[in-house]
């Protein structure tokens, strides 16, 4: 229940914040919370993959793109 509420909060904040680097980090937190939720629901294989791919590789992709382009966002 608490994880679900934090999930909504992190999704909202990561799309709200103007600095793209912090948006990427908060998106990583969102992925990790999602992973915890799935591990709690018994989908351990999905949770493993999400932890490796969602929180790890996606965040690296986003950060590398942000460093190659610009860090500011207009909205």
């Amino acid at each position: 229940m608490i994880i679900l509420i934090f999930l909504i909060l992190t999704a909202f904040i990561s799309l709200r914040v103007k600095d793209l680097l912090s948006a990427a980090m908060i998106f990583g937190v969102y992925s990790l919370l999602m992973c915890l939720l799935w591990a709690g629901m018994g989908a351990v294989d999905v949770a493993f993959t999400e932890a490796a791919v969602g929180a790890g590789v996606s965040a690296v992709f986003l950060i590398s793109t942000i460093l190659r382009t610009s860090r500011r966002s207009s909205d």
Binding site: A11, S14, L15, L20, A23, A24, F27, Y30, S31, M34, L37, W38, M41, G42, A43, V46, E50, G54, S58, L62, T65, I66, T69, S73, S74, D75
Partner: peptide
């Protein structure tokens, strides 16, 4: 509605994980 392309892509990822959450909830 977001203007920034990276914001759009983060939104797409959030959308996808929401669908996965739905399906995992079915199996619970």
């Amino acid at each position: 509605s977001k203007n920034n392309l990276i914001k759009k892509l983060i939104g797409m990822s959030v959308f996808q994980t929401a669908i996965i959450l739905f399906y995992v909830s079915i199996g619970y």
